[in-house]
């Protein structure tokens, strides 16, 4: 049984989550199970991707502000090339745009996560440098947790639920892009089998953020106290919300370790893409990856 303070914390964190994120699990599941009037546009090859870029432009994060991508104009240089080479060039161009699109979505989610953290009780009373450290190390773990809500075994919802990009298509891209999403699908399949709802996820994401063992924290005890109150609230909430699944809490805590591994792998891949592909990384993401692990 949870005391009054714990219940208030659960409610405040759930409210903060619902206000901060444009997409949540309930919305995503309605779309993924075909319970909405308009089904998402399915992206399963380069042609459908390019069609989606045109039709979903308003919802694709990188096009919201009519931003033109540098790589796009650079690659548009006219020169006579054999058809095969031309096709290859188009493919590379589309892959680069897809990568930028993923980056913009990540940046958008980092912004939402920051708003969520700020709305969490007592977060803003922490030392500002500690708030930065907590976010720096948490955002990718939180991002892959939230991404699982938008995934099923066949693909991933994009463009605020207006598009669905298939797992096979992502796998068919050239290396290293093809290696980017597959580990996230594998994690999502295991994670989604726990059947968490948005109220559980809100507390789990809060627990990811308020973590006392992030490198460089100044005031560890105060972060640990906040972490402890969230973890206790999560434990009580899971018992009440999933009375038939008594091992859900320890299983969920194990996922924190899986997420750390997933982020380490992801950071290595981003480093590889940066070196091999000569592609630019958004300044916010650069800040986050710099000296991370």
């Amino acid at each position: 049984c949870m005391e009054g303070d714990g219940k208030t914390l659960v409610r405040q964190i759930h409210d903060a989550y619902m206000k901060s994120f444009t997409m949540n699990k309930a919305k995503a599941r309605l779309i993924l199970t075909g319970k909405t009037s308009e089904p998402p546009f399915i992206i399963h090859d380069m042609d459908t991707f390019q069609l989606a870029e045109r039709t979903l432009a308003a919802y694709m994060a990188h096009m919201v502000k009519g931003e033109r991508l540098e790589s796009e104009s650079e690659l548009r240089v006219e020169h006579v090339t054999p058809a095969v080479e031309c096709e290859e060039l188009q493919q590379r161009e589309a892959e680069a745009r897809l990568f930028h699109c993923c980056q913009s979505t990540s940046v958008e989610t980092v912004t939402e996560l920051t708003e969520f953290a700020k709305a969490m009780p007592d977060f803003q009373t922490l030392d500002l440098n500690d708030q930065v450290t907590l976010l720096k190390y948490a955002v990718h773990e939180a991002l892959f947790t939230l991404l699982a809500s938008c995934m099923n075994k066949d693909g991933l919802l994009v463009a605020r639920g207006r598009g669905f990009i298939t797992r096979e298509f992502l796998k068919s891209l050239r290396r290293p892009f093809s290696d980017m999403m597959e580990p996230k699908f594998q994690f999502a399949t295991r994670f989604n089998s726990m059947d968490l709802d948005d109220s559980d996820l809100a507390l789990f994401v809060a627990a990811i953020i308020c973590c006392g063992d992030r490198p460089g924290l100044v005031d560890i005890p105060v972060v640990e106290r906040l972490q402890e109150s969230i973890i206790q609230a999560l434990r009580h909430h899971l018992l009440a919300n999933h009375p038939d699944d008594t091992f859900l809490f320890p299983r969920l805590l194990q996922k924190l370790a899986d997420l750390r591994e997933l982020v380490t792998e992801h950071a290595q891949l981003i480093q590889e893409i940066k070196t091999l592909e000569d592609t630019s990384l958004h300044p916010l993401l650069q800040e986050i990856y710099k000296d991370m692990y």
């Binding site: 502000k65 931003e67 920051t114 500002l128 440098n129 708030q131 976010l135 720096k136 916010l284 800040e287």
Partner: peptide
């Protein structure tokens, strides 16, 4: 502080990083 300029900004106000 300089190393995490945008994160600082986001925490102190809600400037959209897309604009930066």
């Amino acid at each position: 502080k300089e190393k995490h300029k945008i994160l600082h900004q986001l925490l102190q106000n809600s400037t959209s990083p897309v604009d930066l």
